[in-house]
Nucleic acid binder design. Structure first.
Length: 499
RNA sequence: CGGGGCGUAGCGCAGUUUGGUAGCGCGCAUCCAUGGGGUGGAUGAGGUCGUGGGUUCGAAUCCCGCCGCCCCGACCA
C-alpha cells in the first residue's frame, strides 16, 4: 500500500509509521534531551482541547484544581513500602543546588559544597507530597471530602521511550481525594472512571474496556485499580486511564487521621486517578491512516479548513472573500476554522497538508463552484466529497462533523470486535500470541492466581489488561476453567500484549 | 543494561571498500509561468562531514578512544 507520508504504511511497519506520523503531522518533535519530546503547537492545541473537556468533567463532579511542588523529599517516598517498590528505580534525583567551574578542565560541575541535605525526587506521581499536606489539613470528618486535581508534568526515567506513549517527562492530570469512608472513596473512583470512559468514547471516539486491574497490574500502593483499556490498530492494548482506590495506605504512611461524628479517630480513605499525554498516542494509534492523522471532530485543534483557489488576483479575491464570510458563519457556531490562504501552494498540496494534520472537514472554494453557487466538502476519515450550496454550508458542515465523530467511533468499535476473541484452550491461546506484536484482545478464563498470570505472561508476553466491570458479552461472566491451569474460573478476563 | 542501526546542508541520503580538499533529491530565497489531489522553469543561499586523538605531503574516507540518537528486548502510564 502506498503512503502519502513517504514512509512505511501501517501494514509495512506500524512502529515507524507512528513515529513519522507524529512528526509530520506537526504534533511533536524530538528534543535535545533523551526521551523527552517537544509538543508542538498543533499537538499542544489537541492537548488543550483534551484538558478542557476533562477539566469540565472534573469541575462538574465537584473537584477543584490546585498545585503541589515538582520536588518531593526522598524520605516521603520511603513511607509507603509498595509505592517505593513501584517507583524507586525510575526516579530522577536532585542532589545539588549549584554549579561551579570545573577546576580540572572545561565546563561546569555540581558544586561539592552545594550538596542538598536531603535529596529531592522529581515527582513521578504526587501521592506522597500531597498526602503530607492532607495530613495537616484534615482533623475532622467536617474537613472531608477533599476533592483536588492538579495538571502537572511528571518524570519517570523509563529505559525505553516512545513519543506520547512513554516519554521521560510527560504531562497529565492527577486527582487526589480524601474521604471518610471506604464506600465513599469507592464511589469516587467509579465516578472518575466513568468520566474517563466517557471522554475516551464520546470525545476521542476510542472504545474502551472498563475494568479492574489484577493484583499484579495494579498501581503500586493501591488497594485496587480501575482502568480503561483501548486497542490500537496493530492489536495492542493501551492503558488509557486509571482510577485507584488507595484504601488507607497513604493515610497510614502519612499519619492522616480524622475524628468521626462519633468522636472516633480513623484513618482517611484515599483515591488517585490520572490520564496523560499518552491519550494523544492512543488517539493516533486508534484512528490514523496511511495519509496521516485522523482526529475526531470534538477534540480536533482545527475542525474545518477552507481552501480558496484561484490563479489570478481577481479570482483569488472572490474565493477568499467567500471563504472569510463562510469562516465567520462557522465560527459563530463555535467551530474551530482555519483558512489556508497561502498563495504559492497548489490546492493538492494543501489537501495533503491538512489531511496529514488530521483536519476532519475541508471546504474547497473554487471559481467553478462559486459560479454554480456551491462549494465542495471533503471528509478526512472517509475521503468522501460532496457538493453543497453556499447557504447550506454551515448545516452541512455540522452534519458532516457529527457523522465523522460517530463513524470514527463505530469503525474503531467494529475493529475491536473483529479483534476480540474468546479462547478456551491453551494451544489456541499460544497460537494467537505466537507472532511478534499485537494480537488483539483475548477473552479467556483465568484461575485468579498470580502464578498463572505470570506464567501466561512469560510464555506469551500477553498480560491481563483487566477484569471487565461490564462483560463484553453476557456469557463472559459464566464460570469455566482457566485457559492455562485448568482450574476453576469465575469469569473471563481480557488478555493482550500492551504498550 | 543486552542486541541492531545511524551520525555528511533544515530534512532524507550518496560518497568511505580503493585517501586527493564534498555531491544529489526535497525543502528554503527571488523571479516568471501555473493553480479542482504533493505544478513547471530559471537563478541563488546554505556544510569546521558527531567529537577527541593518531597515521599521512594530504583524511568524510584508514586506526584508536569517546559522545549522541533511533529501532528491537527486559521495565513501565
Amino acid at each position: 500500500m502506498s503512503s502519502n507520508l513517504g514512509i512505511p504504511s501501517r501494514a509495512d511497519n506500524f512502529s515507524e509509521w507512528y513515529n513519522e506520523l507524529v512528526q509530520k503531522a506537526d504534533l511533536a518533535d524530538y528534543s535535545a534531551v533523551r526521551g523527552c519530546m517537544v509538543i508542538k503547537p498543533h499537538g499542544y492545541a489537541l492537548w488543550e482541547n483534551m484538558q478542557r473537556a476533562l477539566d469540565d468533567m472534573f469541575k462538574a463532579t465537584g473537584h477543584q484544581n490546585a498545585y503541589f511542588p515538582l520536588f518531593i523529599p526522598k524520605s516521603f517516598f520511603e513511607k509507603e513500602a509498595e509505592h517505593v517498590d513501584g517507583f524507586a528505580k525510575e526516579c530522577a534525583v536532585v542532589t545539588h543546588h549549584r554549579l561551579k567551574a570545573n577546576p580540572n578542565g572545561p565546563g561546569l560541575i555540581p558544586d561539592p559544597d552545594a550538596v542538598l541535605e536531603e535529596p529531592l525526587i522529581v515527582r513521578p506521581t504526587s501521592e506522597t507530597i500531597i498526602w503530607n499536606s492532607y495530613s495537616k489539613w484534615i482533623q475532622s470528618y467536617r474537613d472531608l471530602p477533599i476533592l483536588i486535581n492538579q495538571w502537572a508534568n511528571v518524570v519517570r526515567w523509563e529505559m525505553r521511550t516512545r513519543m506520547f506513549l512513554r516519554t521521560t517527562e510527560f504531562l497529565w492530570q492527577e486527582g487526589h481525594t480524601a474521604h471518610a469512608t471506604y464506600d465513599e472513596a469507592e464511589e469516587e473512583t467509579k465516578t472518575i472512571l466513568e468520566c474517563y470512559r466517557s471522554f475516551a468514547e464520546d470525545w476521542m471516539a476510542v472504545p474502551v474496556v472498563v475494568g479492574v486491574k489484577s493484583e499484579g497490574e495494579k498501581f503500586k500502593g493501591a488497594d485496587h485499580t480501575y482502568t480503561i483499556e483501548a486497542l490500537t490498530q496493530d492489536g495492542r492494548a493501551i492503558q488509557a486511564g486509571t482510577s485507584h482506590h488507595l484504601g488507607q495506605n497513604f493515610a497510614k504512611a502519612f499519619d492522616c487521621k480524622f475524628q468521626s461524628a462519633e468522636g472516633k479517630l480513623e484513618y482517611v480513605y484515599a483515591t488517585s486517578w490520572g490520564v496523560s499525554t499518552r491519550l494523544i498516542g492512543t488517539l493516533i494509534m486508534a484512528h490514523s491512516d496511511d495519509k496521516g492523522f485522523v482526529c475526531p471532530p470534538r477534540i480536533a485543534p482545527i475542525q474545518v479548513v477552507i481552501v480558496p483557489m484561484g490563479k489570478d488576483a481577481e479570482t483569488r479575491e472572490r474565493t477568499i472573500g467567500v471563504s472569510r464570510s463562510m469562516a465567520e458563519s462557522l465560527r459563530a457556531k463555535g467551530l474551530r476554522v482555519k483558512i489556508d490562504e497561502r498563495e504559492k501552494e497548489s490546492p493538492g498540496a494543501k489537501y495533503n497538508h491538512w489531511e496529514l494534520r488530521g483536519v476532519p472537514v475541508r471546504i474547497e472554494v473554487g471559481p467553478r463552484d462559486l459560479d454554480a453557487g456551491s462549494v465542495v466538502l471533503a471528509r478526512r476519515d472517509t475521503a468522501e466529497k460532496t457538493t453543497v450550496l453556499l447557504d447550506e454550508v454551515v448545516s452541512s458542515v455540522e452534519a458532516m462533523l457529527d457523522a465523522a465523530q460517530k463513524d470514527i467511533y463505530q469503525k474503531a468499535l467494529a475493529f475491536r470486535e473483529a479483534n476480540t476473541r474468546r479462547v478456551d484452550t491453551w494451544a489456541e491461546f499460544q497460537e494467537i500470541f505466537s507472532g511478534e506484536g499485537g494480537a488483539g484482545f483475548v477473552v479467556a478464563h483465568w484461575d485468579g492466581t498470580q502464578e498463572t498470570e505470570d506464567a501466561i505472561s512469560d510464555a506469551t508476553k500477553a498480560t491481563i489488561r483487566c477484569i471487565p466491570l461490564v462483560p463484553l458479552q453476557p456469557s463472559d461472566e459464566e464460570p469455566g476453567v482457566c485457559v492455562f491451569s485448568g482450574k476453576r474460573s469465575a469469569r473471563r478476563v481480557v488478555f493482550a500484549r500492551a504498550y
